[in-house]
Design a protein around this nucleic acid. Sequence first.
DNA 1: AACGAAACCTACTGCTCTACCGGTAACGGA
DNA 2: TCCGTTACCGGTAGAGCAGTAGGTTTCGTT
Lengths: 198, 198
Amino acid sequence: MVRARSAERRAEILRATLEMIAERGYRGASLSAVAERVGLSQQGLLHYFPTKEALLVAVLEERDQWDTGGGTRSDGTWRIDLLASLVEYNAMRPGIVQTFSALLGESVTEGHPAREFFTRRYTQVRASMAAMLRAEYGERLPGGLTPERAAPLLVAMMDGLQYQWLLDPDSVDMPAAFQDFLTLLRSTESSAPENPRS
Amino acid sequence: MVRARSAERRAEILRATLEMIAERGYRGASLSAVAERVGLSQQGLLHYFPTKEALLVAVLEERDQWDTGGGTRSDGTWRIDLLASLVEYNAMRPGIVQTFSALLGESVTEGHPAREFFTRRYTQVRASMAAMLRAEYGERLPGGLTPERAAPLLVAMMDGLQYQWLLDPDSVDMPAAFQDFLTLLRSTESSAPENPRS
DNA sequence: AACGAAACCTACTGCTCTACCGGTAACGGA
DNA sequence: TCCGTTACCGGTAGAGCAGTAGGTTTCGTT
């Protein structure tokens, strides 16, 4: 009973933190503001998460579980059509996208507590994407690309489109643009490697 | 003489500000820290730029001039090979890239002073890219894309790669990856539109 | 030589931030 | 019914923040 109530509170706090980070970024999000949003004093919040950084870590971990959960195949790889669905889904949740875009931007600064998280995560996501591309299209992709070379492009496209979309949703149709990219990756014949890398 | 010295100081300040933003982001960059870096008191700095926001605006304006200057053709459009060169150039200046990536990330948060700047800038850059693509490849691009539809992809790719590269330069060869994308945009036959948009 | 502006600085205000310390009240288990 | 744990809150330390007020020095111009 107590446990359940506690877990509920923690979930509330994490949700509020996500919102605050979307609005102000991690550095700009103050503990008091988060606490106020869940109807707690700042000290009450610190009872659940002892430091601000611990709170951020909890947010990141929750998210990590969240989106390594759905959308993957039994062998752990993604399906490319589900990737497109994910982008469509994201387009309906600007809040979440904004949270992680703001966080990603901050994370490149020195000593940011999310930096290591994102670094590790991108390594993992690139590998996952490469596996997906290989499963879907085999070894040869358009332009003589290998799955390993195409994977970072896929990730970059998703992230990059998010920023343009967040800044100006009316001018950028994110899901359509991402589909365009997938078309590009699909529609063309795979030729011999044009500029092989070592 | 005085004027020259003053302009020199301003330039120093702007350079230091760029550094500080790269290290801590805009919100995390304090006036005192910037001032110290140029050997001024915080109030001495405020003599040149009356508010923190004015300082940021000056940084953005300087950058705006800077990179709408080189690389464009007489008619104001870019050349695509110069775009690849720009990416290569950026790969040698992690500081600058970091500054603007951090700023872009922050700018999606509410009420950020750089938000309008980036919004306007991306609109303009997309238009510029579309013009370049049209000049270079004509109306039909691979996958049935129009220049207007490919333009945001080009921009997104540049931005997205920057984040991956900043987080893990050893794992991501940014210029090569961008070249891969350009190859993708080039190497394939232009087919009829597959999924035309309204 | 006198003047005015530019280029700073010291001191300070008022605010916000994270985090610690020490309480207290409720509650579930023994 | 006692007792330990959980779930908080008030107070406050201690630091940093942007920005103001009011100086003084330097220096080019007249």
